[in-house]
Amino acid sequence: MTTKQFKDLVVPEQQAMWRVAYGLLGDEAEASDALQESMLRLWNVRMKLDGVTNQRAYCMATVRNVALGMLDSGNRRMVPIDAAEDQASGSDVAHELEVREAVARVELEIGRMPESQREVMRMSSFGGLSNQEIAEATGMTYDNVRAVLSRGRRKLRELLMNSSK
């Protein structure tokens, strides 16, 4: 694989890869670092990429592994405050504050979930990835991702609904 072919492969996937990293790490700078490390890893195995059937899934899985490695080494998780601020951009200040508080509770609750569910929920909730993109990154089936998301979201809804009464 030439350098140009490698760029043609990975550059279009950068956005999705960055969202995977951000979803897991919750910090723009760390997501960028994870993306950079993933690019280098993919570069080192570029000769093997020609034989990979689903190159997009391989890229997503690579950045996922890098982000999880950064999580394990640092053993911390940044609260996606930026996302909450962007989401709650309405004129209702009270609503913004409530959403921000709810995001923090969601973050806490997701942290208590089993590892596989936690990963899927983070990619969906904070990475904004589609079910298909999550399936490609984790190696799970689409139906499995959907089922995990359903259980996780219902649990979070129940928690938030009970706390708002």
Partner: peptide, 14 residues
């Protein structure tokens, strides 16, 4: 509130 908290999403890549 619940929906926005659960699907807060992420910012665009810089």
């Amino acid at each position: 509130r619940a929906y926005e908290a659960i699907s807060s999403g992420c910012p665009d890549m810089p």
